[in-house]
Computed example of a mutant assay.
Amino acid sequence: MPKKLSVPEIRVTSSEQQGLFAQAADPITPLKEIDMNGATLMELEDIVKAAHQSFQSHLGDALQAGLIAGKALLTAKQQFTYNRQTGGFRGWLERIEVSKSTAYRYIELATNEPIVSQAGTLSEAMERLAQHRAEQRALKAGEEQVEVKKRRVTLKLSNERDQKLESIAKSRGGDVSALIKEIVEQWLANEQDS
C-alpha cells in the first residue's frame, strides 16, 4: 500500500512564504537587527562567524557582511585585554577561525562606514578606502612640507636694541617674536609690491 503524504495542518500565505524564502536566501538580514553593544562575547562570536561564512560563500551581500562582521569585531575587541595564555583578541580570532588580516579588513570597513557605505560592491568599497588612505597620506605629507618651510632665526642684537624691541612689543600688547614676525611680513609685502 503506497504511503500518503502528510499535509501540514497550518497553512502559510504566499506573502509569508516569500518572506521565509527571502530570509533563507539572505542570512545577513537577521544580523543587521542585532544590538551589538548589548551582545555577549558568545553572541558576538556567532555574529562574526555567520557574517564571515556569508562573506566567504557569497550568499549575502559581501559588503554588508563585512560591515556587520567589522562592527561585531570592534565591539568584541573592546572586551579583551592581552593574556599570554589565551592571546587576547588575536587568540580569540584564531579560535573562531578568522584570520587577523581578514578581521582587520572588516574592522577597517566598519570604522570607515561613511566612506564605504556609498559603494555598491565590496571591491568598490576597497577602492574607496585605498583612495581615502592615499588622500590622507597626501594631506599628511603636505603638513610635513609646511613644517619644513618654517624657519628659525636667531638675531644678535645689542642690549639697547633688544630692550627697544621689548618695549615696543610690550606697548602693543605682544611679545618680541610676534613683533619681529610682523615686521618681516610687512617688509616682504613691501618687497613684492616694488
Score class of each variant (00 low, 15 high):
residue 20 L to V: 12
residue 151 R to G: 05
residue 18 Q to G: 11
residue 107 I to S: 06
residue 24 A to V: 00
residue 12 V to I: 15
residue 8 P to E: 13
residue 145 Q to W: 00
residue 155 L to V: 13
residue 43 E to N: 03
residue 114 P to W: 07
residue 92 W to H: 07
residue 59 L to N: 10
residue 106 Y to P: 03
residue 65 A to I: 07
residue 101 S to W: 00
residue 155 L to M: 14
residue 22 A to Y: 01
residue 44 L to P: 10
residue 45 E to H: 05
residue 108 E to S: 07
residue 19 G to L: 12
residue 86 T to P: 06
residue 116 V to N: 12
residue 166 E to Q: 15
residue 75 T to H: 01
residue 141 A to H: 04
residue 134 A to K: 13
residue 74 L to K: 13
residue 146 V to P: 00
residue 194 S to K: 09
residue 52 H to T: 15
residue 140 K to V: 09
residue 100 K to F: 09
residue 24 A to K: 06
residue 84 R to Q: 15
residue 10 I to T: 13
residue 89 F to K: 10
residue 55 F to S: 08
residue 127 E to Q: 04
residue 91 G to M: 03
residue 182 E to P: 00
residue 162 D to P: 03
residue 2 P to W: 04
residue 20 L to K: 01
residue 69 A to T: 13
residue 34 I to R: 03
residue 128 R to L: 15
residue 156 K to E: 05
residue 26 D to V: 07
residue 43 E to S: 05
residue 142 G to P: 00
residue 77 K to S: 11
residue 63 L to I: 14
residue 121 T to W: 06
residue 63 L to A: 14
residue 26 D to F: 06
residue 64 Q to Y: 03
residue 2 P to K: 09
residue 100 K to M: 01
residue 65 A to R: 01
residue 113 E to M: 11
residue 160 E to R: 14
residue 36 M to A: 02
residue 183 I to E: 08
residue 40 T to W: 05
residue 89 F to D: 10
residue 182 E to H: 00
residue 145 Q to A: 15
residue 176 V to M: 01
residue 148 V to Q: 12
residue 157 L to D: 01
residue 105 R to A: 15
residue 40 T to F: 04
residue 46 D to F: 07
residue 150 K to W: 03
residue 151 R to C: 00
residue 151 R to N: 03
residue 7 V to G: 00
residue 174 G to L: 03
residue 176 V to C: 02
residue 154 T to K: 02
residue 41 L to Q: 15
residue 73 L to G: 04
residue 140 K to P: 00
residue 119 A to P: 03
residue 106 Y to I: 13
residue 166 E to H: 09
residue 102 T to V: 12
residue 43 E to C: 00
residue 185 E to F: 06
residue 93 L to C: 06
residue 118 Q to K: 11
residue 8 P to A: 12
residue 80 F to I: 10
residue 50 A to M: 10
residue 115 I to C: 05
residue 81 T to L: 04
residue 119 A to F: 12
residue 135 E to L: 13
residue 52 H to G: 01
residue 12 V to Q: 06
residue 181 K to H: 08
residue 80 F to E: 11
residue 33 E to A: 10
residue 137 R to P: 02
residue 68 I to W: 01
residue 158 S to V: 05
residue 64 Q to T: 15
residue 129 L to K: 05
residue 152 R to F: 09
residue 88 G to D: 08
residue 2 P to G: 11
residue 39 A to I: 08
residue 113 E to G: 02
residue 49 K to P: 02
residue 121 T to E: 08
residue 169 A to T: 11
residue 81 T to S: 13
residue 70 G to M: 07
residue 37 N to Y: 08
residue 50 A to T: 14
residue 164 K to I: 14
residue 25 A to T: 05
residue 122 L to Q: 09
residue 138 A to S: 10
residue 121 T to F: 04
residue 3 K to I: 11
residue 7 V to W: 03
residue 17 Q to D: 04
